[in-house]
Simulated scan of single mutants.
Amino acid sequence: MYIDDLPIWGIVGEIDEKGDGYYLWTTKKFDIGYNDKQIVDVNLTSEEKVKLEPGAVISFKYEVKWSPSSIKYEKRFDKYLDPNFFQHRIHWFSIFNSFMMVIFLVGLVSMILMRTLRKDYARYSKEDDLDDMEKDLGDEYGWKQVHGDVFRPTSSSMLFSALVGSGYHIAVVSLCVIIFAILGDLYTERGSLLSTAIFVYAATSPVNGYFGGSLYAKMGGKVWIRQMLLSASLMPACVCGTAFFINFIAIYYHASRAIPFGTMVAVTCIYYRWQWTSFLAAASTAGYVYLYSFYYFFFKTKMYGLFQTTFYFGYMALFSMALGIMCGTFGYIGTSVFVRKIYSTVKID
């Protein structure tokens, strides 16, 4: 609930410890603080708990108390930014532990990989010193043996380039929105963050076209108009297509409005090409995030019913899909740079 764009929370009802009785809070008290002619503070308390019985007639009432406040209108959102307001404890040790674990694993894998590459480079450099007769007697081995297949265009290059272009686009939009949120006060008005994201998404659409189109051209694609349309409509089509499902649920529950976001687009086919492998391996992070949302839903929230369940998992699905495309793009970029780097230092006959 919002009053003059200020969010408020209140208890609607509760269940007793045994799970047999259901209670409803029937009185709502609003404490509204004002400075001059502007609302700067809102608090809601619930009172008079009534047990729900079949056929019972329940009366609801509310009270409003207006109190002068010294809070300035520009500072009325400051209390919501205070971590003590929500009483959420930040587990700094867990964050530090996870960060150090990632650094350790990345360093360990990098050391093993660099050690293997040094041995291969030394072995290949010895072969370069041999004459042509000795080279013909030996066969290529290791990752040098597949040099002819590494740089071949991947299957479904149009879809792959569209996903990579969308990943670039989402990354740029996320970075711009974060910068705007740091520099400006996007939290002071409802919907300003979403409106900014939509505007930035439209303004930075050439990023999608440039990176997706250039990758498609490098892979030898010829139908560039179809690829351009696919890149431009991939994310909007996913969002708009699932909005109908969300709206049907909202209409069924007679909701006053429906938020048009939902469901996750799953990748159903995995190709044995390194481009798709690198993209899907990094994008699998989104699968972990979406699976964790199930744990959070059942053990950390008190949501129930088809309406709340659909909206919760719809939001998480859309977020996970965008995160997967962005992470997959970064995975492909890193793998592509690595593959081209190691083959650029090896002499290929």
Rank of each mutant, 00 (worst) to 15 (best):
L186S: 05
F93V: 10
Y315R: 05
G191P: 05
M228G: 11
E53H: 09
L52W: 09
M133Y: 09
V42L: 08
Y290I: 08
A162H: 02
M321G: 04
Q308R: 11
L215M: 14
S205C: 06
I90W: 13
V102W: 15
M316F: 14
L159M: 12
Y304I: 12
E14G: 00
S110E: 08
L323R: 00
T268L: 14
Y80R: 00
A197T: 15
N84I: 03
G33F: 03
Y210M: 08
E63M: 12
F85N: 10
L117Q: 04
Y210T: 06
A322S: 09
V177L: 15
D31P: 00
I342E: 05
D36K: 15
F338S: 11
W25D: 00
Y73H: 13
S98R: 14
K79Y: 09
V239K: 02
F313T: 11
M326K: 02
Y216A: 11
D349Y: 10
V200M: 07
M100P: 02
L44Q: 09
F245R: 05
S231Y: 02
C269T: 13
F248D: 10
A322R: 00
Y34V: 05
Y253W: 14
L52C: 09
V12F: 08
E189F: 05
I198N: 02
E17A: 15
W276D: 00
I32C: 04
S98C: 09
A203I: 08
H91E: 14
P236Q: 11
S59Y: 09
L108N: 01
Y141H: 14
K49M: 04
Y272D: 11
E134L: 06
C269S: 14
F151V: 01
S192I: 01
V146F: 07
M316R: 05
I179V: 15
S69N: 08
F211Y: 15
Y295S: 07
I3R: 03
Y34P: 02
A322Q: 02
N247A: 10
F330L: 08
I182H: 12
L113C: 10
K347I: 13
G334V: 06
V40E: 01
S214N: 09
L6V: 10
E189P: 01
I103W: 09
R190T: 10
I198T: 08
Y272P: 12
F338I: 08
K18G: 12
D36F: 10
F299L: 14
R340V: 03
D31G: 06
E17I: 12
V164A: 00
P236I: 10
F104V: 14
F30G: 01
Y124P: 00
L137T: 06
